[in-house]
Amino acid sequence: MAINNPYNQYKESSIKTATPQELTLMLYNGALKFMNQGKLYIEQKDIPKTNEALMRSQDIIQELNITLDMNYDISKNLRALYVYIIEKLVDSNIYKSTESLNEAIEMVTELRDTWKEAMKLAKMGK
């Protein structure tokens, strides 16, 4: 049962009123949050929590992947990146490797930062 507190209400409202661009940014941020949690749990040797965090980040990257509009050339490049990131997350989860996870974190951080910059440029162009 969800706790009906002001923060949860705000969060739910933010998601419902977000533009597709803002939702994509939220997904990138969520993936990074779970990847960083997974890294912490690997370091703490907490296998169940590592698995849960990395599976959640995989789910988010998979969601980004399946929602790509393949009518654009850039989508083909993004698909390849997302597949590679998922492979790194799977490796991290299987081998409890922060090396693979750091690579995935770096790539998603770069994608997120690029997305944020594109959003700024799009707003300036309006």
Rank of each mutant, 00 (worst) to 15 (best):
K33A: 11
A104L: 07
E110V: 04
A122H: 09
I94R: 07
Q58F: 09
A18R: 08
Q21A: 13
M70H: 03
L89P: 05
D46R: 05
L64G: 00
A80D: 11
T98P: 10
T109H: 05
Q9E: 15
M35D: 02
E52Q: 12
N102V: 09
S75T: 08
V83H: 06
Y82C: 11
K76T: 14
T24N: 11
E110Q: 05
R79N: 15
I60C: 08
Q9F: 10
P20F: 02
N36L: 13
Y10C: 05
L40N: 10
M119Y: 08
L32D: 04
L121G: 03
N102F: 12
A18W: 12
D59Y: 13
E12V: 14
D69P: 08
M55F: 08
E87H: 13
Q62V: 04
T67M: 05
V90P: 03
Q62S: 10
N5I: 14
Y10A: 11
A53D: 01
A118R: 08
T19V: 03
P20I: 03
N71G: 09
E106Q: 15
L121E: 15
N77Y: 13
L25I: 07
M70A: 00
A31C: 04
W115C: 00
F34T: 03
A31K: 00
A118F: 07
N36H: 14
K16A: 14
T114H: 13
F34W: 08
M107C: 01
A2T: 14
T50N: 01
E117G: 01
Y10V: 13
K16S: 12
M107V: 07
Y41M: 06
G38I: 00
A80C: 04
T24S: 12
T50K: 10
P20V: 01
I94V: 14
Y84M: 14
E12Y: 12
L64C: 01
K49W: 00
N102C: 11
A118C: 11
M26A: 03
E110H: 07
S92A: 15
I61D: 00
L89E: 06
S97I: 07
V90T: 10
E63T: 11
K16L: 15
A80N: 09
V83D: 12
Y28A: 00
I15K: 15
D69W: 06
D91K: 09
F34M: 12
L111T: 06
M70C: 04
P20K: 01
R79D: 15
I94M: 07
